[in-house]
């Protein structure tokens, strides 16, 4: 995962630089999209949310406002927007089996399996696992994004990992 210089990107976005937006977009879009999709289960909704969030971030920064942690801001915005959308809409389309996975390092069976297992987790535990695995957020950061105590975030993470391990039928080696 390539790390972008967030403060530089924020400074460029504040001056209205659209190439900086493209850079940030390319860096985060797939994981943000997957994160939203894991909550709403609708490609159309996830696309709408991603488009609106990036537009909002551009307008927010180019109007001179400040964001301290862009990555957290993006995930918080996507999460809130996804839950808002779910509240106002009940549309849910089943995900097609030929969904395009970003990485080629796993075979399709493993990808489908992990997606199905993640879907079996309660939504709060799934979100924690995705935030931890996608971006390497610390438990404290995850707690801030989900607006829950850090201890709860840590506990839910352990709980989710234990469930996944059991479902995968693996031996706990760590």
């Amino acid at each position: 995962m390539v790390q972008i210089n967030e403060s530089e990107m924020i400074a460029r976005l504040r001056s209205g630089d659209i190439t900086a937006l493209e850079y940030v977009y390319m860096e985060y879009v797939d994981r943000l999209y997957s994160f939203s999709l894991s909550i709403c289960k609708s490609k159309e909704t996830a696309e709408d949310i991603i488009a609106n969030v990036f537009l909002m971030v551009y307008n927010y920064l180019s109007s001179g406002k400040q964001i301290r942690n862009l990555k957290s801001f993006l995930y918080t915005s996507v999460r809130n927007a996804t839950y808002d959308e779910i509240k106002f809409s009940s549309r849910k389309e089943p995900l097609p089996e030929d969904d395009i996975y970003k990485s080629n390092t796993l075979d399709i069976c493993e990808k489908v399996l992990i997606t199905l297992l993640l879907d079996r987790l309660p939504s709060d535990e799934r979100e924690i696992i995705l935030l931890y695995c996608y971006e390497g957020f610390l438990h404290k950061e995850i707690a801030n994004i989900l607006d829950i105590p850090e201890g709860t975030a840590r506990w839910k993470y352990r709980n989710a990992i234990a469930k996944l391990k059991t479902w995968m039928g693996g031996v706990d080696n760590d």
Partner: peptide, 22 residues
């Protein structure tokens, strides 16, 4: 399965956003 492998599996299950979205 150890936790690190599980985390890697999850990371690799990221789905690609449509190209037209940009």
């Amino acid at each position: 399965m150890i936790e690190k492998q599980l985390n890697k599996l999850v990371l690799n299950s990221v789905k690609a956003a449509p190209i037209s979205l940009w």
